[in-house]
Simulated scan of single mutants.
Amino acid sequence: MSISTAFLPRRLQALWRSPTGGACVLLLASVLGFGLANSPWAGAYGAVAHWPLSLAVLGAQGPRTLTAWVSDGLMALFFLTIILEIRQEISDGHLSSPRKVALPLIGALGGMVVPALIYVFTTRGAVEAARGWAIPIATDAAFTLPIILLLGARVAPAARVWLMALAVFDDLLGIGVIAIFYGSAPCWPALGCACMVLAGLVAVRRGGVVNPCVYGLGGMLLWGLCVRAGVQPTLAGVAIGACLPAPLARPGLNAVVTWGVLPLFGFLNAGVSLAGAHVGMLLAPVPLGVMLGLVVGKPVGVFGASMLAARLGVASLPEASSLHMLFGLSLLCGIGFTISLFIASLAFTDPALVETAKLGIFTGSLIAALSGWLWLRFGGRP
């Protein structure tokens, strides 16, 4: 699926083809969403973001608002494109050996354990805060990728692949944590049907079927069954990305995701209202634990685990990547927006705790994004 740009002026054509163009649009859309949520038009923005939209066939677990459809539905396409890129790197690129794949996986594990420990230590004695230990464990790939693209040559290609693989592993592990510690019992019949659909897709791939309609219909069915089963539906995008045969591994979705899905996602999810918030609220146990987990725990866990794995010889560092570069990317791992917000809504029944957790998530993610960008932009040579 390719999109013609012949009708655009040359400068716009260059912007369209440039990886930084989509990154700029995502960041601008996110800023616009945040600005509207904290403006006199906040009511209209909220009405759009929470516009009722549901399908009876998906049951009570299905998306019920526009924001939920973008986050749970369209973002599956984003994970599909990321998995395809990682597959390419595993085939003949920067992740072409087990030791190179081990590095982002070990980094993701470290980036989950250390933030959780910091949160638990920070909130000790606050019983009501205990269930929020998993809030700072996630990295939001949708917001880290555009920052990396904006940095251009200051981030080596191998290091970018490492961080994207780490973010995917992080999301998968985070979804596992949600299912084990925060989820209700899945709908086993729907989950069984999803497994059968996935097995069918694997079978047709091995049978040499390359018809994109087969995988498209199978992917939509798999996504719907994941919803009915109570499983994070973006996993369907990961599964389809892993199942596509090599001739379809470049489906041309990058432009759709870059210029459509991600800006819409940023616009709807960055609209965190700061009404009634003040600096003193950040010192409460929940927001302080979340913020420290993201800003301190994430880089310490990711960078520390990665360096330990490399020192022990179980993993290889990305090619042409300095320790300075990897630490800066580890700082960006503290951007834990979407999954963190989701875990906060599951962890607490008290709306006040949810709101303070959101404040910690937003502040911590913003600090992580700025510190990582400044570190990589001004702290070293390309």
Results as ranks from 00 to 15, higher is better:
128 E>L: 10
95 L>P: 08
171 D>H: 06
331 L>T: 06
92 D>G: 14
171 D>L: 02
40 P>G: 04
156 A>G: 04
8 L>G: 04
284 A>F: 09
173 L>V: 01
19 P>C: 02
107 G>F: 10
285 P>N: 07
184 S>C: 07
380 G>T: 10
293 G>M: 04
225 L>M: 14
288 L>H: 08
350 D>H: 06
268 L>V: 03
328 G>V: 00
287 P>L: 00
4 S>L: 12
6 A>G: 09
257 V>K: 13
226 C>M: 15
274 L>D: 05
139 T>R: 12
261 V>P: 05
184 S>R: 15
6 A>S: 15
12 L>H: 09
39 S>C: 06
106 I>E: 09
358 K>V: 00
287 P>W: 04
157 P>A: 07
64 R>C: 02
139 T>H: 07
49 A>D: 08
149 L>V: 04
83 I>H: 04
302 V>T: 12
27 L>M: 03
220 M>H: 12
237 G>F: 03
315 A>L: 05
119 Y>G: 09
22 G>M: 03
102 A>C: 07
133 W>Y: 00
22 G>R: 01
181 F>E: 10
116 A>M: 10
254 N>Q: 14
379 G>S: 05
36 L>P: 06
263 P>C: 07
8 L>F: 04
101 V>L: 15
209 V>I: 11
62 G>H: 10
303 F>A: 11
152 G>T: 06
51 W>G: 03
289 G>R: 07
364 G>Y: 05
381 R>H: 11
30 S>L: 05
243 C>A: 13
175 I>V: 15
137 I>A: 07
88 Q>N: 14
137 I>K: 11
283 L>T: 13
309 A>S: 04
198 L>T: 08
203 A>H: 14
242 A>S: 02
